[in-house]
Lab assay of single mutants.
Amino acid sequence: DVEEQIRRLEEVLKKNQPVTWNGTTYTDPNEIKKVIEELRK
């Protein structure tokens, strides 16, 4: 469920934690926001 994935990513973003997505770890909040934007398409 895309909405659920977006919610999880936004939670991690608020906590300033790194996100691992498709084998890539993102630590930059701007990169995480880009992943969220991609999911919304």
Rank of each mutant, 00 (worst) to 15 (best):
G23Y: 03
L39H: 02
V12N: 14
Y26A: 01
V12Y: 15
Y26N: 01
P29E: 05
L39Y: 03
E4R: 05
Y26W: 04
L13P: 00
V2E: 03
T20N: 13
E31M: 07
E10L: 10
Q17G: 11
R7H: 07
V12W: 13
T27G: 06
L9F: 10
N30K: 11
E31Y: 05
E31R: 03
I36N: 00
Y26E: 01
V12E: 14
G23M: 02
V2D: 03
N30D: 15
Y26P: 01
K33N: 07
P29W: 08
Q5G: 04
P18V: 13
P18E: 10
E3P: 06
N16R: 11
I32V: 09
E31W: 03
W21F: 14
K15F: 09
I6H: 01
G23F: 03
P29G: 06
T25M: 11
E11V: 05
Q17A: 10
G23H: 04
L9N: 00
E31Q: 09
D28Q: 03
L9I: 10
Q17I: 13
V12H: 15
I36A: 01
E38T: 10
V2I: 15
R40T: 05
I32N: 00
E10V: 05
N22Y: 09
E38H: 10
L39G: 00
E11I: 06
T27L: 06
E3T: 10
T20G: 02
R7S: 09
K33Y: 13
T24P: 01
E37L: 08
R8I: 15
T25D: 04
Q17C: 08
V19A: 07
N16Q: 10
I6V: 05
K15L: 15
R40Q: 07
N16I: 04
K41M: 13
V2W: 15
W21N: 02
D28V: 03
Y26D: 00
L9Y: 02
E38K: 05
R40W: 09
N22K: 09
Y26G: 01
Q17N: 07
L13Y: 04
R8H: 14
L9H: 00
Q5A: 12
V2H: 06
I6A: 03
D1F: 12
E4N: 07
L9V: 02
I36E: 00
I32G: 01
P18G: 08
W21P: 01
I6W: 03
R8K: 14
V35F: 12
T25W: 12
E37C: 07
R8W: 15
N30L: 12
E4K: 06
E38I: 07
R40N: 10
K34I: 06
E3K: 10
N16L: 08
V2Q: 06
W21D: 02
N16W: 07
T20A: 08
E10T: 08
E37G: 03
E11L: 09
D28R: 04
D1G: 11
I6M: 04
Q17S: 09
R40V: 10
L13R: 03
T20Y: 14
K33T: 07
L13C: 03
T20D: 10
V19Q: 01
I32L: 11
E4Y: 06
L39A: 02
Q5M: 14
T24A: 10
P18W: 10
Q17L: 15
K14T: 12
T24M: 14
I36R: 00
K34R: 12
W21M: 06
T24L: 11
T20R: 06
V19T: 06
T25N: 05
R7A: 13
I36F: 04
V12I: 14
I32E: 00
T27I: 05
G23Q: 04
R8T: 13
K34A: 12
N22F: 11
K34Y: 08
K15T: 14
L13D: 01
N30Y: 13
E37A: 12
Y26Q: 01
G23I: 02
N22I: 02
T27H: 14
E10C: 07
N16S: 07
R7L: 13
E3M: 12
E37V: 05
V19G: 06
K41H: 13
Y26T: 02
I36V: 04
K15H: 13
K34D: 05
V35I: 15
K33A: 13
L13H: 03
V12D: 14
V2A: 06
K14Q: 13
I36G: 00
N30A: 14
P18N: 06
